[in-house]
């Protein structure tokens, strides 16, 4: 196993994961005041209406697709009677649609941020980086899903390489050998994602963890009292 392989597919991803986890803990613990979606709807609403909904709904389905394709071993779906062909078709169709929604949304987000003066002048480096990196990762993903099969006689079977590598990575048994012969655009998709995850805790993307599901079961009016000893 080459040193580069070890670095790219063992050291680098664990580094990104560590920064991801520790970064979040740090920010959550020490900087609650900055923990926000930092929405720009208040400054620009017309474009955001479409861009945001396309992107967010698209990316949610893209995420679910990744869970299905990468975390569920091919043998399991096979055992359920889903043939490889059927899986590939579904992945292409559903993944393609979700991916296109997300890519239109994120392109629009980038365009909007650069073209609307109110946003351009009031954005932090993190704001720009987050959407630029998302664009890169999603664009590579779209290429791998929709264009790669056209030029390579059918889709790449990532469920034989990337998926087991990822499961190994998440369970502490990373096998870099699985990754070294993966096509370059797939490798780039992953490397860009590592960077995105490493930057994640330091950008507005943290708002993902604040999806307020608890609201669904909460009473409407909240009171807060003084601690009893202060009454």
């Amino acid at each position: 196993m080459s040193l580069t392989g070890q670095f790219l597919w063992v050291i680098l991803p664990y580094l990104a994961l560590s920064i991801f986890v520790l970064g979040h803990l740090y920010r959550y613990g020490f900087s609650q005041y900055t923990w926000t979606a930092r929405s720009s709807e208040f400054l620009e609403k017309r474009q955001l209406r479409w861009a945001s909904q396309l992107f967010h709904y698209g990316i949610i389905f893209v995420f679910l697709g990744h869970v299905l394709g990468l975390l569920v071993p091919a043998a399991w779906t096979g055992a359920l009677g889903v043939s490889e062909r059927l899986y590939q078709e579904q992945a292409l169709l559903l993944g393609g649609v979700a991916g296109l929604l997300a890519v239109v949304g994120i392109v629009w987000f980038n365009w909007r941020r650069w073209s609307v003066a109110r946003l351009r002048r009031n954005s932090s480096l993190g704001d720009y980086l987050a959407i630029a990196l998302l664009l890169l990762v999603i664009a590579l993903g779209i290429y791998n899903t929709l264009l790669y099969p056209l030029s390579h006689h059918g889709p790449y079977n990532y469920r034989a390489t990337i998926a087991p590598w990822l499961r190994g990575f998440l369970t502490g048994r990373p096998d870099a050998a699985l990754m070294v012969h993966v096509p370059a655009t797939f490798q780039l998709h992953l490397l860009a994602a590592f960077l995105l995850f490493a930057l994640w805790p330091f950008t507005r993307l943290v708002h993902l963890w604040s999806l307020p599901l608890a609201y669904l079961r909460r009473r409407y009016i909240l009171y807060r009292g003084l601690p009893p000893e202060a009454r």
Binding site: R218, L222, Y223, R231
Partner: peptide, 15 residues
């Protein structure tokens, strides 16, 4: 406003 806040960040002081 309190009822609309999904984060539960808005509140009415008891006292």
């Amino acid at each position: 406003c309190v009822a609309s806040c999904p984060s539960g960040a808005m509140y009415k002081r008891e006292e």
